[in-house]
Each structure stands twice: as C-alpha cells, then as structure tokens.
Design a protein around this nucleic acid. Structure first.
Length: 231
DNA sequence: TCATTAAATTGTT
DNA sequence: AACAATTTAATGA
C-alpha cells in the first residue's frame, strides 16, 4: 500500500520544479533529497484518511489525488484535485491538527513524502520556503473562495471549466504543463458532475476553442478564459 | 511485426 | 444507467 522507495530521478525532478527549491542552498537541498521518500498508492486507495494526525508534507510526483470528505451516509464531496507537482498537507502540519479531509488516489499515484522534521527545519531556516508556503496558502484561499461561488451559482459547463482551470493553476501545480492525462470520469469526480455531463461540457469548451480533448487526456488552450467562464 | 483479445474511455440515448 | 463505438494495452504467433 505505502512502501517507501529509494529516491527516483522523477522524485528529484519533481522537487526541483517547486519554486522553493531554487531558494535552497546546497546543504539544504542535500538534506531534503536525503529525507524525502517516495510512496506508491494504487488507484482508489486512501493516501491520508480524515482524522489521522499528519506526520509529513506530501506532494504528487505522478498521478492524481482528490481532497474530499465523506458524510456518514457515504456521500462524498470533493473539494479539489491535486495533480503532478502539487503539494498539500501544510495546513495540518502548521496547526498540528488531524486532517479534516480524506486524500484519495484517483489512480495509481506516487507521492513525495517529506517528514515533519524536514518540513519544520525548512520552515525555520529557509525564507524561500516560507515565501512559497505563503503563496500556496494564498492561492488555495482564492481557490476555495471561488468554489463557494461556483458550487452554488454556476451551471455544469462552467463548473467543469473552472475545475479544469484549477487543475492547471500554475502556482499550485508548477511545470509548464498544458496537457493532463485525466479521464472524463475523473473530471466528473472532481467537479461534482456526472460523466455524461462532463462529456457535454467538454464539447462546448472544445467548440469555444478553450480546450482540446484527446483519448484519456485534456489540453488547455485558453486558461484565462476557463477561469472566468460563466461570470 | 502483426493479429487477436481484453480493458478502458468516450459518445449517445 | 445502459449501450455501442472507439482507443489503448496486452498477448502470443
């Protein structure tokens, strides 16, 4: 389920795409590389369960996870998806609180696992790391504020559009990706829309030249237009 | 390399 | 939710 692995080249590459990495000196980079490990999760399995005390800062190397909450009745509500290059869990680490949401792998996913000690050490020694966290927290705040709006007001087309825009947020998920391997079913999970409706919405977005759809993947053409879609 | 088959994904109703 | 069509992946000759 979650067996540690020696650091792969992709893990190192993923670390290097983070904006905070550039601000670290050699010694700091060395310690981070030595202490971060890689863990694999099969699709559908829980990476971090709601209520668990978090002992690591975590980032997506490869794959896709969703941040969601399950009601007692078994209904799940998804808050956001996190793709390659994205980090999460800093909130729970900073507050030393148990996680408030489940993190579930939507498909086979490799996670970069930075122990709490490493995280706190970076926090107390690197200004670049602090700046990165501030930016990330601010981005997420904006993202969730926007979500309150779209959860209630927007029609399905717009919800899918904004969901995609979030997935390609350059601050939260760096690396100049314009294409993401994600099925329409997965987009449905993330945006709270049925797969069939996702299909319809995507066709509208394709006609509007906002995205291109290929088998099993989406390419973003006009990110700015996706962001403001429906408002 | 090519053909066959199974599995995943998409498009439609 | 069900179904058909399409694409990909896996298998073996």
């Amino acid at each position: 389920m979650a067996e540690p692995d020696p650091p792969s080249s992709q893990l190192v590459g993923m670390l290097a795409t983070g904006a905070w990495w550039v601000g670290l000196d050699e010694a700091q980079r060395g310690r981070v590389t030595a202490e971060v490990e890689e863990r694999r999760f099969a699709g559908g399995t829980v990476v971090i369960r709601k209520g668990e005390t978090i002992e690591a800062w975590t980032g997506v190397i490869d794959g896709l996870v969703k941040m969601s909450s399950m009601s007692a009745a078994g209904k799940s509500v998804t808050f956001t998806g996190i793709g390659p290059g994205g980090w999460f869990g800093e909130g729970s680490l900073l507050k030393s609180e148990p996680r408030k949401y489940d993190i579930v792998a939507l498909r086979d996913t490799r996670i970069a696992w930075m122990p709490r000690a490493t995280f706190e050490w970076l926090l107390s020694t690197s200004i670049a790391f602090n700046r990165f966290l501030l930016l990330q927290l601010n981005e997420r705040l904006g993202q969730f504020i926007g979500m309150v709006e779209y959860e209630r007001l927007l029609e399905p087309d717009a919800r899918v559009a904004r969901c995609l825009a979030e997935l390609f947020n350059p601050h939260l998920y760096p690396g100049h990706r314009s294409e993401l391997e994600i099925s329409q079913e997965e987009i449905g999970y993330l945006s709270g829309v049925s797969r069939q409706r996702v299909n319809q919405a995507l066709q509208v977005l394709v006609r509007g030249k906002l995205v291109e759809v290929e088998y099993g993947s989406i390419r973003i053409i006009d990110l700015a237009a996706l962001r403001r879609y429906g408002s």
